[in-house]
Design a protein around this nucleic acid. Sequence first.
DNA 1: CGATTAACTAAGTTAATAGTTAGTTATGGC
DNA 2: GCCATAACTAACTATTAACTTAGTTAATCG
Lengths: 221, 221
Amino acid sequence: MAKSSKAARPKSRKTRDADLSRADILDAATSEFSEGGFDGARVGRIAEAAGVNINLIYHYYGSKERLFVAVMEAAYVTIRTHHKDLELRALDPVEAMTALVRATFELFATNPHIIGLLGSENMHRARHVRSSEQIRNLYNPLLDTIGETLARGEAAGLFRAGVDPVELFLSINAECYFYLSNQHTLGFILHRDLTSPDMLARREAHVVDVILSFLQFGARS
Amino acid sequence: MAKSSKAARPKSRKTRDADLSRADILDAATSEFSEGGFDGARVGRIAEAAGVNINLIYHYYGSKERLFVAVMEAAYVTIRTHHKDLELRALDPVEAMTALVRATFELFATNPHIIGLLGSENMHRARHVRSSEQIRNLYNPLLDTIGETLARGEAAGLFRAGVDPVELFLSINAECYFYLSNQHTLGFILHRDLTSPDMLARREAHVVDVILSFLQFGARS
DNA sequence: CGATTAACTAAGTTAATAGTTAGTTATGGC
DNA sequence: GCCATAACTAACTATTAACTTAGTTAATCG
C-alpha cells in the first residue's frame, strides 16, 4: 500500500521539527491505514513514507493501535469541519437539503481516505473509536439541524410529514457512501468506471433527486 | 476472529470425506474472512475452526488467496440464487420494485458475511474477483429485469420516466448495504443498536419508502 | 560555551504466520 | 487380502512485522 503517490520526503531534514514529524507520520498513516485497513497497514511502510525512523512512530504514538486512533480522530475532525461550514438554517428547506446531500457526497468524493478508514473500523466493530466521547457526539448538531430543517419544510408544505431525521441521515449517507466504498466490485460487475468526473456528477445529481423526491412525495403542496 | 460461534467439530472423524472437508474449510474460511477481512484472517484459525490440519487447506485450495477467491465465488452464488427466486416479471411494477428492495435488504440482513467479504474485496480494489467472468456477468439478468420493470411502470403511468436502471440498482443496494456495513460506527454515533429486529424492520420499511417515492414522484397518474 | 534535554536513528529481538516436507492411515478396485 | 491412491497429519521453515534497546545528534537555556 501507499507505495504510489507522495514520494518520501528527503531523508535528512536540515532542521528538527517534532510537530512536522508528527504531522508527516499522521499523513502517511492516514494513507496506509485507509488503503490497507488496520490489518493490511504496515508500520514500517508508514515510517518510510513519512521519511522517519520507525521508532519515531513509537516515540510519538506508542503503538500501531494508538496511531490508528489518532488517524480516526483526525478523520472525524475533517467530517465535522466539512459540515459545520454549511449554515443550513439560513437556507430554505429545499435548498438546505440539497446542499446537505451535495456536501455529503463531496465530503466522501474529496476525502476518499475516510471511506477506507470507516470500512476498517467497522470490520473491527468500532473498537478503536469507541473510547472517544468526541466522536460519539460528533453528529448530534447535524442531526438537530436536519430535524429543524424537516420541521420547517413540513410547516411550509414542501416536505411530507413524519420523516425521521435519523432515517434521513442514514439514507443520505448510504447513497453517497456506498457508491464510493464499493466502487471496485461495482465497477467490475457494471462494466464501467464509476470514478470518472462524468459518472460522479451523474451520481451526485441522482442522489439529490432520490432524497428530495422522498421528502417531497406526498407533501401538501 | 471466528473463535465464537460454531464449535470446532470433533477432531477425528470416523470416515474420511473429501467433499465434506472441503465444505467445512470453505465454511470456516467464509466466517474468518468476513470477520477479519483478507488481511485479518488467519489460515491457522480457519484450519482449527474447520477441524482439519492446516495443510489440508493447502492441499485443496493451494493458498490463502485461492481460498479467498473460492469464498467470494460461493458468496456470489448466494446472491444470484437469492435474486433468481424473485420472478419480478410476474408482478405488477410497484409490487415488483417493493419485492426487489425487500429481497435486497433481506439478502444482506440474512447473510451478513457478504458484507464483510465485499468490504475486504473493495479494500483490495477487487483484485481477487477480477478474474471471474461468472461474477462479472452476475448482475446482467437482474439489471435487465429492472429495466423491464421500469418500462412497464412508466408505460402504466405508475413510475416517472427516464430512470436509469443502473442508478436505481445502486440506490437500492446503497440503502440496504450501508446500514448494515457501517452498523458499528453508526450505532456508536447514533447511540443505539441498529441490529434489533425492531430497528431492522423500521429500516427496511423506510428503504422501500425511499425507493418507491423516488420512482413514483412526478409519475403521470 | 557547556550541559541538559529532546529529536531522532541503527540494529536488533521476538512472536506470529503463510506455506512445506515428509510422512501415516484409510479406502476402494481388483 | 492387497495395493494404488487419496485423505489426512505432525512437525518444521522462512519470513515478516510489531516493537525495543541502546545509542547519536541537534537544539535550547543559563
